[in-house]
Simulated scan of single mutants.
Amino acid sequence: MTQTHNTVHLEAVTEPQHFGQRLDQVLADLFPEYSRSKLKSWILDGNVTINGEVNSTPRHKMLMEETVEVNAVMEVQTTSEPQHIELDIVYEDDHILVLNKPADMVVHPGAGNSDGTLLNALLAHVPNIDKVPRAGIVHRLDKDTTGLMVVAKTVPAQTHLVAQLQERTMSREYEALALGTMVGGGEVDAPIGRHATKRTLMAVRETGKPAVTHFRVKEKFRAHTYIRLKLETGRTHQIRVHMTHIKHPLAGDPVYGGRPRLPKGASDEFVNILRAFKRQALHAVQLSLFHPETEEWMTWTAPLPQDMVQLLEVVRADTRENGFDDD
């Protein structure tokens, strides 16, 4: 068993809807990635300030436009063990590692996924990466999203990469197949927060954190659209939630996509492949960042995985066979 300590610094300003609510309730709304019990313990331990003054009363009633800060050290117990799992490494040096994550690989161990994760693989592949918080993982992809991720091999590299994410200088681009025929590209600017009733899901909410996704159309089909997306922010499930929000969920998405939409006259092959595609058709195709040691701007690309290539071929064939004109 190993033990790590993660420094947590959170800051936000309360909004009109928080007026009169309890401090612990407001923190749960502002920082949904942390459990209510953890947030309450930080309040009781004196790790929360309101306008610079420590407040250790969970029931304290909040006002508007108050600056809330959390400064705490989170002790993490983990039983994660190194596992020799083959990784598709695109680039590696003494400071960073860039990999092409396959579908069905969980990034961090969790409920139901105690091993076989990217973290387990990194512990085996990189000596001493257990000294880096979260084994150097600075951003994640959902279990069934494929594509490029960067991992820090040292604490200074991790600090540098996290700063790039916060300052939005790291560029992450994706390709996806969305349901429905989209007229053109655009931008989705809609805040994302924890779903009001389904706490494992995310949703567009007025009280959520700012989230911006840019997209452009690469190819139109009669019932789908092949798109390229670029993240301006990096909220949990952001692309999947935003595309569902504008009524174009991703093909295959088992959580946000609903039932497959089958166009009239579709061939048996088309129907079978679409129904068999059980993951969101989403791939992190390009990653660009400043190298944490040399400051060089670097870019990597990863080709579409074979299942998405096959899906696109079948959708194209269906479009040709049914005389669809995308002009």
Results as ranks from 00 to 15, higher is better:
235 R>A: 04
172 R>Y: 08
44 L>E: 14
312 L>C: 06
307 D>C: 11
211 A>E: 06
243 M>D: 04
165 L>F: 15
159 T>D: 14
208 G>L: 09
42 W>P: 04
255 V>R: 11
327 D>G: 14
299 T>S: 15
3 Q>W: 10
53 E>H: 14
277 F>G: 04
252 G>A: 10
302 A>C: 09
162 V>Y: 00
52 G>Q: 07
290 F>N: 13
160 H>P: 00
283 H>C: 05
185 G>T: 03
181 T>Q: 06
321 E>C: 02
85 I>V: 13
40 K>V: 08
273 I>N: 04
309 V>R: 15
270 F>N: 04
109 P>M: 10
234 G>S: 07
66 E>G: 08
34 Y>K: 03
222 R>Y: 03
67 T>R: 15
34 Y>I: 05
84 H>L: 05
231 L>D: 10
67 T>P: 00
171 S>K: 08
13 V>M: 08
259 R>Y: 01
73 V>L: 07
128 N>A: 14
22 R>L: 06
10 L>I: 13
233 T>P: 09
274 L>C: 06
139 H>T: 08
246 I>N: 05
250 L>E: 07
57 T>I: 12
131 K>F: 00
303 P>R: 07
175 E>L: 09
12 A>N: 08
257 G>M: 04
216 R>L: 01
86 E>F: 00
259 R>W: 00
295 E>A: 14
82 P>M: 04
282 L>R: 06
87 L>T: 14
67 T>I: 12
213 T>F: 10
210 P>D: 15
133 P>K: 12
173 E>I: 03
310 Q>N: 14
69 E>W: 01
306 Q>T: 14
280 Q>Y: 02
161 L>H: 05
4 T>C: 01
244 T>L: 08
173 E>Y: 00
30 L>M: 13
159 T>L: 13
104 D>F: 14
61 K>L: 14
126 V>L: 09
206 E>F: 00
249 P>K: 11
154 T>S: 14
123 L>A: 04
269 E>D: 14
85 I>W: 05
165 L>M: 15
50 I>H: 01
131 K>H: 05
238 Q>A: 10
145 T>S: 12
285 V>W: 02
121 A>Q: 08
170 M>A: 12
275 R>K: 14
239 I>S: 05
204 V>C: 07
16 P>Q: 06
116 G>N: 10
265 G>F: 10
272 N>V: 00
6 N>R: 13
74 M>I: 15
173 E>F: 01
263 P>G: 09
295 E>N: 15
17 Q>S: 08
99 L>Q: 03
55 N>R: 13
136 G>Y: 02
255 V>S: 06
110 G>M: 05
6 N>C: 05
